[in-house]
Design a protein around this nucleic acid. Structure first.
Lengths: 222, 222
DNA sequence: CACGGACGTCAGAGTAGCGTCAAGACATGA
DNA sequence: TCATGTCTTGACGCTACTCTGACGTCCGTG
């Protein structure tokens, strides 16, 4: 979930942005002036800052400098001033984009997506799952402790890890990995579950995380 | 030195941009249409692309897609069309910024600086990579110990080094280096991995840094 | 308590995919 | 034009992954 900090002193703009961003599954925090913005950013670590330049307490460029002192979080500037000098100053202070008020909300959202794209990709890579002693990174296909898996083992493990705590039927596993013609080959599953447990469970004979549900399927318990 | 590829079909705009950018110590290449742009980008590897959307041969968004298929180079769109839909499409296709013509040159330069700021920082990190006995400088394309690589070898090595520790799929390598029509040619990869190991690994038969992930791809271990 | 069904485990056959060598096709610059 | 280096293509042995069969074990049920 992408976290966006909105900084503006006009309550109606704060409100409009919050409604639009929350509706699009962003997590939102608000700040009405520069010092509140710096405080909030330090505590909450947003993934993006929407910053109005016309704040009551601090100059907008100073807020950018205040943020850039310790974080590289993307900053999109909103401003009523359309002057070129303002834009240039803000961008050179470290802002990533500059949108002039009044702005179209769809355009702003597209710019938000563009700016967060790179960061989002990096964050997704960090999505790591813990399984017992091991840390598993599904996108990079890495497991701590030098454990290596074969393609089929990865495939099965991925399906289980994407459904934490939930029962995954033999049917689902067999269709996803081998196709619908292999629904009867439960032997395959038994075979590969042995391998996975041997590589990942502390005591493969008494699994704690990769659980058999008799006659139904398997379950990953975090 | 930052390399900028300017894509526009109007000669006077090309000329104006070139003069301004060269004066500010950028290295500049020009392209008058979409296919020339894609060709130039593939050969010259610019650090930033300034792209006009109204090209004679290809739709601007297709050019963005064509670039994004194999590179993450920052793209700044220049456009006479101020419509929001155009902006949104271009930004979502993978553009990093959008500037409407007529634009102020100083503003454009500020946006160029903003967009390249992050990439420059990332590149600095990659400036020198250690692989076993060898120090590899990706920007200058040099390797300690008098090792020399062919263009294709560099291309593959770069992709792997840009993803340290991460699995890089055969698919990704083949598309980035040869294009989407070569997805089946895993033989190429095997061939070049042999070469790279012979040139870089201490014991090419038992690689420590350029690792094969059977059935999946390759991985660079620092 | 005995039986049957489903699961766990082991070991070996078959095979896809990898590493390697080598030679022909192509591009580049002298 | 030739010479050199690079890319592409073919052939082949070998590794390790997948598949298969045999057997042992566990658990619920009658």
């Amino acid at each position: 979930m992408t976290r966006i900090l909105i900084v503006d002193d006009e309550p109606q703009i704060l409100r409009a942005l919050r409604i639009n961003l929350v509706a699009r599954q962003y997590e939102v925090a608000l700040a009405a002036d520069g010092s509140a913005a710096l405080r909030e950013a330090a505590q909450w670590h947003p993934d993006l800052v929407l910053l109005d330049l016309g704040l009551p307490d601090l100059d907008g460029v100073d807020v950018i400098h205040g943020l850039r002192g310790w974080t590289t979080v993307p900053i999109v500037v909103l401003s009523g001033r359309a002057g070129n000098q303002d834009k240039i100053e803000a961008l050179d202070a470290g802002a990533d984009d500059y949108v002039t008020k009044p702005f179209n909300i769809e355009e702003l959202l597209a710019r938000v997506r563009a700016v967060t794209r790179r960061t989002r990709a990096q964050e997704a890579e960090l999505a790591a799952v813990q399984l017992g002693d091991h840390t598993i990174d599904l996108t990079n296909k890495t497991i701590s402790g030098g454990v290596r898996l074969t393609p089929t083992e990865w495939h099965i493990l991925e399906i289980l890890l994407r459904n934490p705590g939930r029962l995954v039927s033999q049917r689902q596993l067999l269709t996803e990995v081998w196709g619908t013609k292999y629904l009867k080959e439960t032997h395959y599953l038994r075979q590969y579950m042995v391998q996975l447990r041997r590589k990942l469970e502390r005591d493969p004979a008494h699994p704690v995380h990769l659980i058999t549900e008799l006659g139904m399927g398997y379950r990953y318990l975090p």
